[in-house]
Design a binder for these strands. Structure first.
Lengths: 337, 337
DNA sequence: CTGAAAGCGCTTACAG
DNA sequence: CTGAAAGCGCTTACAG
């Protein structure tokens, strides 16, 4: 392995000077700089990031902490990651997905090793033990989502009020007065405390009276087959002609199940996806009308928020990003009966 | 930050001895061990992984290199990752997803920093520039997939011959004699060199004459809408009553498109997914019959192969894992016409 | 502008 | 079984 020492000897300078040109951290005369650069090229020098990290006390590694063992990474999260990684890379950081389970212990161990400079925490619960662990560790972090007390931390999140309003108003404009909100849990044990569920439900419950609509919420899980799922959802609120569905997988299964049980979408019932990926809409028949999750924008904002913290820049105010309306063919005017 | 030095002083021993008990690397009398452990607990000592990495020349970080900027991470890859990460974790390694673009340059830069001890390379092309980069770098690696010359490297891959045979024989047993293979490209520029495409196509072309069946292959991309997609695929081989589809997204879109264009699945045409996620089958209407990608098993085997290399263990022979048949309702006997 | 030197927090021969 | 010391490859005051 070629080290700075080798380069320094080859160029006839001290390793400090080599460091100054590698990092562009102090002025160096053009002549010495040229000698050093030539030596680096000739020897094929690559700066050792581990040594750099130890000396500078910064690894420049950021961890996207996602509970992959408990909850599968979905399309929107992958979009989020890609966008956040690009933003981090542009500012000289590595952003990697670090698989950590949800209970906080494993995260504590990771942070104790001081291998990562900062954390982007995903799939935040209202009361999330991982947040306490992060706080105690002193590692800078930003939340993608919010806890019960949002303003204690840096975060970016989806604007659930605006998203629910967008969906509800779309259906209301089509004449639907009775709505069902379906929360499709990706985990077995239920998700009452999961931020997106709690906030979507709250926004839904607050908005319906304002719009003089009726609504019910039902939580389902991933194990049921499409037919049973559709029957159960319809039975939970038989008057509903409009259904909002929180996760993509559940939305697609519901549409399939409605058809198989003889209900026409959108003829009998209109269905919309919430926080969905455009990609999911395209595989649905009919193409799903949806509120598209703002993965790319959240990714950029999340990475920015974290990096500003790391670099002691002025924090930006927390941002809430609404989902965008994406037209499909799964919603239509209520049938006059 | 509490260091080994602090622990050593607190326990009245040298830092070497602390290191011996932390790593369990040399015998230490129970009495001193107890003193040291007590000191660690009392001071809240956590071993600094960066310093450890520099001194031992091993970071214990393994990178799952996936070209996230070019190709979206799909469900099977996520399953692969989760399983590989668990296997790595059990052996004391961190396995993280490192976003690196496909062209090799970025990978070279990453490896030069010596931040990762080993690489699991995904989405391998037949001629993959990233493999040359890995080889030159001296970083241990294993391929998930194979290049044109498989046996020069450690790899694990899907058994495409067995997988194609499983699908073809299922359809042949139902009486289908004319088959179409659809390769659904996730990227714009086509994927001729992408391992799974090339090997599936080759297996398909080799098998059909043996079974005295006819077949055609068609490559499509992700931009077309479902109806146009279905029309084009049917037109490419009008006699076909059985269709095999390589990627999940394309399979779902095709089934939707067939229905919308008036063809019944499986009444008129049987459709099967190849290398698919069980999850995708469940959101399809009718539920998709498929050959399930062995993400979890490949993940375990891939992590093992890499770690054996890192630890200078005897290499295991390369493994090919077949997809498992997963019954659905998208295939049925050929209609006698 | 450049260099000598301390130090980042560990591991690992080596000696006893 | 334990310790003193060198060394991993850098960064960063400090001095000149």
């Amino acid at each position: 392995m070629v080290t700075m020492k080798d380069v320094a000897e080859h160029a006839g300078v001290s390793i400090a000077t080599v460091s100054f040109v590698v990092n562009d951290t102090k002025p160096v005369t053009p002549a010495t700089r040229a000698r050093i650069e030539a030596a680096m090229v000739e020897l094929g020098y690559r700066r050792n990031a581990v040594a750099r990290a130890l000396a500078s006390r910064r690894t420049r590694i950021l961890a996207l902490v996602y509970p992959v063992f408990e909850r599968p990474l979905n399309t929107s999260s992958v979009e989020f990651f890609t966008s956040a990684a690009a933003a981090a890379s542009a500012r000289g950081y590595h952003l990697v997905i670090w698989p950590v389970s949800n209970d906080g212990r494993e995260l504590g161990e990771l942070l104790g090793q001081r291998l990562v400079d900062g954390v982007l925490l995903m799939e935040v619960q209202l009361d999330d033990s991982r947040v306490q662990v992060l706080e105690r560790s002193g590692t800078p972090f930003a939340l993608i989502g919010r806890t019960r007390e949002p303003d204690r931390y840096r975060y970016v999140d989806i604007d659930f009020e605006a998203t629910v309003a967008g969906a509800v108003d779309h259906l209301a404009a089509l004449g639907h007065q009775h709505l069902t909100l379906v929360l499709g849990s990706g985990v077995d044990h239920g998700d009452r405390d999961y931020g997106p569920f709690a906030r979507t439900r709250a926004a839904f419950d607050a908005l319906l009276p304002e719009r003089t609509l009726t609504g019910r919420t039902i939580e389902v899980n991933q194990t049921e087959d499409a037919t049973a799922l559709a029957d159960r959802i319809v039975a939970s609120h038989p008057a509903a002609t409009g259904i909002l569905v929180l996760n993509d997988h559940t939305a697609l299964r519901l549409v399939a199940g409605l058809r198989r049980t003889g209900r026409k979408v959108p003829g009998d019932i209109s269905v919309m996806g919430l926080l969905a990926a455009a990609e999911s809409g395209m595989v649905c028949d009919p193409p799903l009308t949806l509120m598209r999750a703002p993965g790319p924008e959240l990714g950029r904002l999340g990475a920015d928020a974290l990096i500003r913290d790391l670099e002691k820049d002025e924090p930006l105010p927390p941002r809430l990003v609404p989902c965008a309306f994406e037209p499909g063919q799964s919603t239509a005017p209520r049938r006059s009966s």
